[in-house]
Design a protein around this nucleic acid. Structure first.
Length: 879
RNA sequence: GCCCGGGUGGUGGAAUGGUAGACACAGCGGACUUAAAAUCCGCUGGCCGCAAGGCCGUGUGGGUUCGAGUCCCACCCUGGGCACCA
């Protein structure tokens, strides 16, 4: 019998036994509640898993294991997000084909997940690149198409010159491609979109129905960006040709335009208005202005077209614009205001035109200052008071210089002006969203083909269900063409087909971005091998929604928003019974690893936010110590700071790794990896083995019969209190994602047991010690399943801990006979008293006043007040 | 600039408004050992004190309260997200 933790001798053995017993195969017993625990769909990188990834999988595994022991039918699947740019790029770099490559990588991921003892039901696994899977991705695409939620249009898109593809807005970070890190360019090509904007309001509203981190919800709300305002028409007016410059007339033939504002209360302060350079009305407007203005407009628009989005949206950039020579009429007061064109107004938001109120908007103010446009304050901090400094952007104010609306608060004025604009048919109150439609087209090979045929007459036909999947053709060369077309377009024998009616047609050659594949995989896990349907409705009805969804916060907007959108579309189509896919969501913190840097040398410059030049570990060793410093960074292959579970399991064992990752910090918090602190877990497990080894001769499997009839000794009682106290803590902590305190509770359990056994050997309290041993092993099982099974076996028990019932709490043992009462004088602790639990207030007060440690602090003072919290403390207030 | 988190010993961290520092790591002392490792026992926030004990202490400054790491206000630092969205 091992009296210490020797993982090499048993971890592989138990993993093999679990596999042979199909232990984690999904159970669907009637009469049991269900629990669906899911991890984010991983892309299996060639670098394999790091201990950082494990921080996602281990906690979910702990919860799923406890839920199963508590009697739930647990669905805990794993599959691989194999399609998409990362896989294709890695394959190109390795000069191989993405298909077989990703298969190897996925196998390696699975090996590592098994190495750390994660209890997945592998019989349900799939890859998003399996034709049996993407057949149904294509089928869902058609559902969207039929419902008018998928469409193709020419679009200026984010073109990533390195990836040679189009990126979704969400994949452009600060004007740079999210993977390539280079500035994206504008290009105009036909693109497929999903109309997620139709669902904007529901995507906001239903966040209230799910248990997600508040920060993630807020990020989604911000991304969708709802704002309420008024949209109204500006009529164009030109100087009267035969009269003086001061007289104007409305030109009905001119292109009147609409503006959107959230600050209708400031409408009297409008001193100009601005059109985006791409605004379609400008072309007509040019016909009404003189030659000089026309030339300026054209020059400005040409220039704007050439600017990249990054340059245009750089916040440090000074605003630019041109006066058109035309004017518009402010409908609120009939005053004329000049019409400008400026690229700080964006065509894709609102109407692409704004009313500019420089007194109350920082951007308009900056522009007005630069071009000498008047500024008219209309909101002040108090009634009848003008603001002292401009711009005055606060909404906590009152209107001035606003006709009959002067004196109203901002809130009142927004309401009344909105009503007035609507009553006079000047405009309408409107809700705007920042969210834009989801660009799904990728001009790349390694993705799910869009199941559409373009017939010769230009019609778009979905591929019939019976012809799905549209399989990716096997090809030698799949590298992106670089001309904006998919490499699939070059495969004539695949592209050119005859449709059902015998007409010639061309297949759509774009593929879907990877986020499409991960927007429904959680449904497929409910019924992964269905050949006739994407899923059996009964299976999805049974398992959905996901009860516990765990992954990194970096998918806060993209994946989670898309998956919610698809679920809602499928709900509307009557295909799934839930409107939200993920009931509870939690984000694990990252594992950061020390990464070497050195100071820049002559001629080297640091980028924004950089503190040094990142170097390899080899280089760090070759440099003098004072030239190298370390920073904790996210683990990544490119930084060379990856710690793999393989090396940790090899050295310390899987259970020590699992415990360490659970214990090291709160679940949601980032942690700094250290190879040293893990020793504590090895030590803990060794002491557990030692305890079981010492006590097992006293172990009686029939302890239940003896324990409630027999009289307990003091030591026996202490042991039982400890046991049941820990059942409560472990159960609550695991349920509440407090894995660090769960492990701490187990350590305290061990320490407490050892204290009891110092005075009373286990053989004298056999029943209580047996209950303790069994409970200890079972409570430990979710976190350290290999050790738990080994210990279970050493106790002479049959089967796996996973199959045992979770220990049952007996609340009677939570009650204590005595409690420690804190005695304070003026809030400062002066003594602690061991008192019977049921001691009443008067008793506590009396004993507190008698305390020898307390009395010196009362001398010469008057007792003014006594606070007694039974079971807790006595506070004597003196003065 | 706006929206979220977070600042507690040498380190990771614990603490329903009620004994701050649980549980660990590291360190120090001791036992065992020829020795080391491993293991076991003890100490370990700062200052004063031989001790008993006292004073200070949860980023800073105020406030509420009998009592504040926890609640409120202002500020500083830090991590993340968004960013010309009218």
């Amino acid at each position: 019998m091992a009296d210490r933790y020797e993982p090499q001798t048993f971890e592989a053995k138990w993993q093999a036994r679990w596999k042979a017993a199909n232990l984690f195969e999904t159970r669907q017993d009637p009469g049991r509640p269900k629990f669906y625990g899911l991890d984010f769909f991983p892309y299996p990188s060639g670098a394999g898993l790091s201990v950082g990834h494990c921080r996602n999988y281990i906690p979910t595994d702990v919860i799923c294991r406890m839920k199963f022991m508590q009697g739930y039918n647990v669905l805990h699947p794993m599959g691989f997000d194999a399609f998409g740019l990362p896989a294709e790029n890695e394959a190109i770099k390795n000069r191989t084909h993405p298909g077989p490559m990703i298969e190897r990588y996925a196998e390696n991921y699975r090996r590592q997940m098994e190495l750390i003892g994660i209890g997945y039901d592998w019989s349900r696994s799939f890859r998003s690149s399996d034709p049996e899977y993407y057949q149904w991705t294509q089928w869902i695409f058609k559902v969207l198409l039929e419902r008018g939620l998928a469409y193709q249009r020419m679009a200026a898109v984010n073109w990533d010159p390195v990836e040679k593809t189009v990126l979704a807005d969400e994949e452009v970070i600060g004007g740079l491609g999210w993977r390539s890190g280079v500035p994206v360019e504008k290009r105009s090509i036909p693109q497929w979109f999903f109309k997620i904007t139709d669902y904007a309001q529901r995507l906001i509203d239903d966040l209230d129905t799910v248990d997600w981190p508040e920060g993630i919800k807020q990020m989604q709300r911000n991304w969708i960006g709802r704002s309420e305002g008024v949209q109204f028409r500006m009529r164009v007016a030109m100087p009267h040709e035969e009269k003086s410059d001061e007289e104007f007339e409305i030109v009905e033939r001119a292109p009147h335009f609409e503006v959107f504002t959230t600050r209708i209360d400031t409408v009297y302060g409008m001193t100009f208005c601005v059109l985006a350079p791409e605004h379609p009305s400008i072309e007509t407007l040019e016909g009404f202005v003189d030659e000089a203005h026309r030339a300026e407009i054209r020059a400005y628009r040409e220039n704007a077209k050439r600017l990249s989005d990054t340059d245009r949206q750089a916040t440090t950039r000074e605003k630019t614009g041109v006066f058109t020579g035309a004017y518009a009429i402010n409908p609120a007061n009939g005053e004329r205001v000049p019409i400008w064109i400026a690229d700080y107004v964006l065509m894709h938001y609102g109407t692409g035109a704004i009313m500019a109120v420089p007194a109350h908007d920082a951007r308009d103010y900056e522009f007005a200052q630069k071009y000498g446009i008047p500024v008219q304050p209309v909101i002040g901090p108090a009634k009848g008071v003008s603001p002292e400094t401009l711009p005055f952007e606060s909404k906590d104010g009152f209107l001035v210089h606003s006709g009959e609306y002067s004196g109203l608060s901002v809130a009142e004025a927004q309401k009344e002006l909105g009503q007035w604009f609507e009553a006079c048919d000047l405009g309408t109150r409107k809700v705007q969203y920042k969210l834009r439609d989801w660009l799904i087209s990728r001009q790349r090979y390694w993705g799910c083909p869009i199941p559409v045929i373009h017939s010769a007459d230009g019609e778009i036909q979905p591929v019939p269900d019976e012809d799905l999947p549209v399989e990716l053709p096997e090809v030698e060369h799949y590298e992106p063409s670089g001309d904006g077309s998919s490499p699939l377009a070059a495969i004539d024998e695949w592209v050119n087909i005859t449709d059902q009616d015998g007409k010639l047609g061309r297949r759509e050659t774009d593929t879907m971005g990877g986020f499409a594949c991960s927007s429904w995989y959680f449904l497929r896990f409910c019924d992964p091998h269905n050949k006739r349907k994407g899923w059996d409705p009964a299976e999805v009805e049974y398992w959905m929604p996901v009860d516990c969804y765990v992954g990194g916060a970096e998918h806060a907007v993209m994946h989670l928003l898309y998956a919610r959108f698809w679920t809602k579309v499928l709900y509307d189509a009557g295909l799934v019974p839930v409107q939200e896919p993920f009931q509870t969501l939690r984000n694990q913190g990252m594992v950061l690893a020390p990464t070497p840097f050195r100071a820049p040398r002559e001629g080297e410059t640091l980028g924004v936010g950089e503190e040094g030049i990142q170097i390899t570990f080899e280089e760090a060793h070759s440099l003098p110590e004072d030239q190298v410093f370390h920073r904790y960074e996210k683990m990544s292959k490119s930084k060379g700071n990856v710690v793999t579970p393989d090396e940790i399991v090899e050295k310390y064992g899987a259970d020590a790794l699992r415990l360490y990752e659970l214990f090291v910090a709160p679940f949601e918090q980032n942690v700094q990896w250290s190879n040293e602190a893990i020793h504590g877990q090895v030590r803990f497990l060794s002491r557990v083995f030692k305890l079981v080894d010492e006590c097992r001769s006293a172990y009686d499997p029939l302890w239940r019969d003896a324990i409630d009839t027999g009289e307990s000794s003091e030591a026996g009682k202490a042991l039982r209190r400890l046991t049941h106290h820990t059942i409560r803590r472990a159960t609550d902590d695991i349920s509440g994602f407090a894995f660090n305190t769960y492990v701490a509770a187990m350590m305290e359990f061990l320490n407490g047991v050892r204290d009891v056994l110092k005075t009373t050997p286990a053989s004298e309290i056999r029943a209580e010690a047996s209950e303790m041993l069994e409970t200890f092993v079972l409570l430990l099982a979710p976190a350290a399943p290999h050790s738990a099974d080994e210990l279970w076996d050493l106790l002479g028990m049959e089967g796996f801990t996973y199959q045992q019932d979770w220990p049952e709490l007996d609340e009677r043992w939570l009650a204590r006979e005595t409690v420690t009462i804190a005695v304070q004088v003026n809030g400062k602790l002066r003594d602690t008293l061991e008192m019977p639990t049921e001691a009443d207030q008067a008793t506590l007060e009396r004993v507190a006043l008698e305390s020898e440690r307390v009395r010196p602090h009362l001398e010469g003072k008057t007792l003014r007040k006594v606070i007694v919290v039974p079971g807790k403390l006595v506070n004597l207030v003196v003065g």
